[in-house]
Simulated assay, not measured.
Amino acid sequence: MPWFVKIEKGIVDKSTFDQFVPAHKDYVRSLIAKGHQAKTGYWGERGGGMMLFTAADLEEAKAIVAQDPLIQNGCVDYQIHEWCIVIE
């Protein structure tokens, strides 16, 4: 399965954002359980982050991202890209 990356930038204050982090983590755990090999994290300087995951195609990747609580609650602006791995 291809890899995808959701690159995000926070657009709400930290206290609002932090309300949805536990649900986001639970969502990522559910993706892992479904075989999407998801990983999530934030930039060291804060204010944004990314999620790596596998999906069958871009349409499935978009559907996966649309269900992320950070997206559903308007916490981040984001871009989705297919990540073409050159060396493993």
Rank of each mutant, 00 (worst) to 15 (best):
M1P: 02
P2R: 08
P2W: 05
W3V: 10
F4H: 02
F4V: 06
F4E: 01
F4D: 00
V5A: 03
K6E: 08
K6D: 04
I7A: 10
I7S: 10
I7T: 10
I7N: 06
E8M: 10
K9F: 03
K9M: 07
K9Y: 02
G10T: 13
G10A: 14
V12G: 03
D13S: 09
K14C: 08
K14R: 13
K14Y: 04
S15V: 09
S15Q: 11
T16K: 05
F17P: 03
D18W: 03
Q19W: 03
Q19L: 15
F20C: 14
F20L: 15
A23M: 03
H24L: 10
D26W: 02
D26N: 09
Y27P: 00
Y27Q: 02
V28W: 00
V28D: 01
S30T: 12
S30A: 13
L31Q: 01
I32A: 12
I32W: 04
I32L: 13
I32P: 00
I32F: 07
I32M: 11
A33C: 08
A33Q: 09
K34Y: 01
G35P: 01
H36F: 05
H36E: 09
Q37T: 13
K39V: 12
K39E: 12
K39R: 09
W43P: 04
W43A: 13
G47L: 02
G47E: 00
G48H: 01
G49V: 05
G49C: 05
M50C: 14
M50G: 15
L52D: 00
F53S: 05
T54C: 11
A55C: 05
A55W: 00
A56D: 14
D57T: 10
D57V: 10
D57Y: 04
L58K: 08
L58N: 05
K62I: 11
I64T: 05
I64D: 00
A66Y: 02
A66N: 04
A66M: 06
Q67K: 14
Q67N: 07
Q67G: 07
Q67S: 06
D68G: 07
D68E: 03
P69R: 09
P69G: 08
P69L: 13
Q72D: 03
Q72A: 14
Q72V: 11
Q72L: 11
N73R: 14
N73P: 06
N73T: 07
G74P: 03
C75R: 00
C75T: 04
D77H: 10
Y78E: 00
Y78Q: 01
Q79C: 07
I80F: 00
I80C: 03
H81G: 06
E82N: 08
E82C: 07
W83F: 15
W83V: 13
W83T: 14
C84L: 14
I85L: 12
I85G: 10
I85D: 08
V86N: 15
V86S: 10
I87A: 12
E88T: 12
E88F: 08
E88W: 06
E88Q: 11
